[in-house]
Nucleic acid binder design. Structure first.
Ligand SMILES: NC(=O)c1ccc[n+]([C@@H]2O[C@H](COP(=O)([O-])OP(=O)(O)OC[C@H]3O[C@@H](n4cnc5c(N)ncnc54)[C@H](O)[C@@H]3O)[C@@H](O)[C@H]2O)c1
Ligand SMILES: NC(=O)c1ccc[n+]([C@@H]2O[C@H](COP(=O)([O-])OP(=O)(O)OC[C@H]3O[C@@H](n4cnc5c(N)ncnc54)[C@H](O)[C@@H]3O)[C@@H](O)[C@H]2O)c1
Lengths: 206, 206
DNA sequence: ATGTTAATGTTAGTTATTTCACATATTTAT
DNA sequence: ATAAATATGTGAAATAACTAACATTAACAT
């Protein structure tokens, strides 16, 4: 019933609705949403139906209650604690990104094997890798963002899984499969670019 | 015939095959590939068929020729010049990333509206935003990576499109639709994380 | 030479995802 | 009250994506 891209779609609904909310709108129709997101209005209604979001046969949907419901579905009642493993260029960019906290995601620490990167006193401390397993267990961390060099990616993933992390957002170019212990979502920026380049070049020749 | 995720799958094949190549393998069977990527072997064969990659009824596929063919499909004969717009945390991480060039992607310049970020002398210069349109036209830039604050994202995208850029990889949280002039691929890291969190939390309760 | 085996290439079938279409409910107008 | 209008909610239909199955072909063994 609930399918692969549906949560990502729900997040898009959320963004749009929050925007409409700031513009002062109180209610919304399925085809307002579908128009801007370029999907069909029936898909919007079906998604809403699947998640128990309900509207009024004429008056459309109440924005406040959709948003409340989406947050409920996503489990936004508690702040999600996340760690960053590998505090190089991209790891640090993510650690310092201000966009997470307003979505209820808190980066609580970074980890690196390079002692020169360690700085325990900071707002968001960078700790040595050795302290990771204990930290994860003690603070009950479930989610990690992995930004280590690809050579150590497999080893790092195993370590995270063994420490009790249940989900890893993987920025290394190696595509990992999810296992029973750990769900891996891969972001391959190079591939995204190559894909884009392909589309653009293709259009040129058509 | 050619469907949405197919190019991304082709890139995954490429990565795997290059790996096998370094291990000394000369040929490969469709189910070697399908096993590690957790898809069916018939999908591999179908993809190959669609792209004119052909094997031998017994001996499988020749790795070198698949790789050559994939590069041909992707148009890897010439280096792709790419610019980065918005050279903040994530923009600079991308600008300095060493992983692009070996895939034939060259970051040729960054652009920012903050004069204190401008540094024209560097290996990869950071130029002021004002110079972007001219630069894009002169150097025939087709692809841009957009890492500006979300407030200026729409304006920046319009400017890129007007300057002649045909494809934008968008890191801002605003989801843009592609138009006739410009193809936009959106990477929303927050959404990827939220999606992962949802999956992990869901599993816990099941 | 002939049979056996092992892989591709391709068609048919299955599953997943999205859209269509319309009955149903609710508001608004008369 | 009744009718008209309008948007939801939902089963059926369509489309897209993937997999199973197998006929075909090439290599190898006997
Ligand atoms: N920078 C980018 O724009 C970019 C883009 C796409 C993918 N990536 C991928 O992200 C990863 C990180 O890239 P980067 O550019 O930030 O590299 P980087 O070299 O700047 O950072 C890597 C960090 O990992 C640390 N590290 C090394 N071994 C470690 C270990 N065993 N455990 C923990 N930390 C360890 C290093 O000390 C360093 O701080 C790479 O796999 C890269 O391919 C980066
Ligand atoms: N940092 C991350 O980890 C991260 C993660 C996900 C998404 N993003 C998104 O990426 C974008 C950039 O994030 P960041 O953390 O690098 O922010 P940042 O503030 O570090 O960098 C933004 C840069 O854009 C420049 N800029 C401002 N206006 C500009 C304009 N009109 N034209 C060109 N440049 C301009 C600024 O001078 C600055 O250098 C944001 O939209 C953010 O939401 C960032």
């Amino acid at each position: 019933m609930t399918n692969k891209g549906q949560i990502l779609r729900l997040l898009n609904y959320k963004n749009l609705l929050k925007h409409l909310q700031t513009l002062g709108f109180k209610k919304v129709f399925s085809d307002n949403i579908s128009d801007t997101l370029e999907i069909s209005s029936s898909l919007v209604r079906k998604d809403f139906g699947n998640f128990g979001i309900t509207g009024n046969r004429k008056g459309g949907y109440d924005i406040d209650s959709i948003l409340a419901k989406i947050d409920e579905i996503l489990g936004k009642d508690e702040i999600q604690k996340v760690i960053v493993v590998g505090t190089g260029r991209i790891g640090q960019a993510l650690m310092n990104y201000q966009g997470f906290i307003k979505e209820g995601i808190q980066i609580v620490a970074g980890f690196d094997n390079d002692f020169s990167k360690v700085s325990e006193g900071e707002d968001i401390p960078i700790l040595h890798l050795d302290k990771l397993p204990e930290f994860v267990k003690e603070k009950n961390i479930k989610i990690a963002i992995m930004c280590v060099p690809q050579l150590v990616a497999k080893h790092t993933l195993d370590m995270l899984a063994n420490s009790g992390v249940g989900g890893v957002l993987n920025f290394t170019p190696i595509k990992f499969q999810s296992s029973n212990e750990v769900t891996v979502n891969n972001i391959n920026i190079v591939h995204e670019l190559e894909n884009l380049i392909y589309i653009v070049n293709k259009q040129k020749t058509t």
